[in-house]
Simulated assay, not measured.
Amino acid sequence: MILEHALLNVLPTRTKEFEAAFAQASSIISEMPGFVSLRLSRGIESPDVYLLLVEWERLEDHTEGFRRSNEYQQWKKLLHHFYAPFPVVEHFATPVVETPEA
């Protein structure tokens, strides 16, 4: 399992628009082969910063499958104009330590 992580700095005056667009975009990514789950959380101290966590079965499901797809072009069209600066996306491997949910 691979965890994709991105901090999304959204233009402060466009957070409501971004959230509506992201709701649309989430249906695009969730249909991709290798997609497992997605979580988008809004910052408390910085409410224009969002944390995006996406789980993929394999790294290539994101980097090759999604990023090279026509669906990614739709994703970009819906979301990329909200970011300043553009986010850095990183991938993480299986957890080193994990506690069970309470």
Rank of each mutant, 00 (worst) to 15 (best):
M1R: 07
H5L: 04
H5T: 03
L7A: 03
L7D: 02
L8T: 04
V10F: 00
L11S: 01
L11P: 01
P12E: 06
T13N: 02
T13K: 05
R14N: 00
F18G: 00
A20Q: 08
A20I: 01
A20P: 02
A23E: 05
A23R: 07
Q24L: 12
Q24K: 11
S26I: 01
S27G: 02
I28D: 09
E31Y: 05
E31K: 07
E31H: 06
P33L: 02
P33R: 03
G34L: 01
G34S: 01
F35Q: 03
L38K: 14
L38H: 14
R39D: 12
S41C: 13
R42S: 11
G43A: 11
I44N: 11
S46L: 14
S46Q: 15
P47N: 06
D48A: 04
V49Y: 05
L51H: 11
L51F: 10
L51S: 06
L53A: 14
L53I: 07
W56C: 07
E57Y: 08
D61N: 07
T63M: 02
T63Y: 02
E64K: 13
E64A: 09
G65L: 05
F66E: 01
S69D: 06
W75A: 10
K77C: 09
K77H: 05
H81I: 02
F82V: 00
Y83Q: 11
A84Q: 02
P85H: 12
P85Y: 10
F86M: 14
P87M: 13
P87I: 13
V89A: 15
V89G: 04
E90D: 13
E90K: 07
A93N: 14
A93Q: 15
P95A: 06
V97W: 06
E98T: 15
E101Y: 07
E101T: 04
